[in-house]
């Protein structure tokens, strides 16, 4: 049992989250391999964010099992939290702190030492080309910069898995492209990427994707296989065919 878990970053079995009568997440099962870029697709209100919050240890499941980085989502949330990075839909760096101060804070919170933080942040600022912005308040940066910075902060402590909840919402195509370059770099360095998105071109960048409809995972495979299965050459079409049957209205 433990052996098979080791090369799986995430394992979900019949994972369910109910709010009263409403099943936000309905018996979903899937596995994510280490180092994989896993696209977690679904219409608004399909239950993606709820599922992701459970996997991040922010919310208790109602039933089913799941392990993240080998740790149980019921009992070992704090262990999970040490091993993951998370970038939520809402921009969650501190607007009234500077770029460097934000990096320093989140690095420190994850237990990095000050010399480590200093070294890595210098490197990060250089890679991002943010040398001129380090002393600026994060609130004054343009959105594209903010998102790239938020992602960099989420993987600053070198987690095993990073969860990205619609990381490119509202970002221009060029920045989105740069953002995905960063995701690829992270995956190349061994970080498993679990990402939700509404952009189907981004779905194509993923190794494998799952599509959620009304709380259930309706399909899970590589983009190429899915397109073959639905006899189409666009991911948009795959998504339409799957999501058309949805009964829930968007939130």
């Amino acid at each position: 049992m433990q052996k098979t878990m080791e090369n799986k970053a995430i394992i979900c079995r019949e994972l369910t989250k109910e709010f009263g009568d409403f099943k936000a997440v309905d018996r979903i099962s899937f596995e994510v391999n280490q180092g994989e870029i896993f696209g977690f697709l679904g219409a608004n209100g399909a239950g993606k964010t709820t599922a992701m919050r459970i996997l991040c240890g922010l919310s208790y499941p109602s039933s089913g099992e799941a392990t993240v980085a080998g740790f149980d989502v019921y009992k070992q949330q704090e262990q999970i939290k040490k091993n993951i990075g998370y970038m939520s839909q809402k921009f969650s760096l501190y607007d009234n702190l500077t770029t460097l101060e934000n990096i320093e804070f989140y690095g420190g919170v994850y237990g990095l030492s000050r010399p480590e933080i200093k070294e890595r942040s210098a490197q990060l600022v250089h890679t991002l080309g943010l040398e001129k912005e380090v002393k600026k308040l994060v609130g004054d940066l343009p959105l594209g910069w903010k998102q790239k910075l938020a992602f960099s902060v989420a993987i600053f402590h070198r987690p095993k898995i990073v969860f990205l909840d619609e990381p490119t919402g509202g970002v221009d195509p060029i920045t989105r492209r740069q953002f995905w370059d960063m995701i690829y770099e992270a995956a190349a360095s061994g970080i498993t990427v679990f990402v939700t998105t509404h952009y189907m071109d981004e779905a194509e960048y993923c190794h494998r994707i799952s599509v959620m409809v009304d709380g259930r995972v309706e399909a899970i495979d590589s983009p190429a296989n899915l397109k073959a299965r639905f006899h189409t050459d666009s991911m948009d079409e795959v998504f339409y065919q799957l999501a058309r049957g949805a009964k829930r209205t968007a939130d």
Binding site: C56, G57, L58, Y86, S88, K90, F91, L93, Y106, Y110
Partner: peptide, 14 residues
């Protein structure tokens, strides 16, 4: 309100 508390809650901060 800003959402930063969720970012804190997802860290190992006790």
């Amino acid at each position: 309100e800003i959402g930063t508390i969720e970012q804190i809650n997802v860290t190992p901060v006790q």
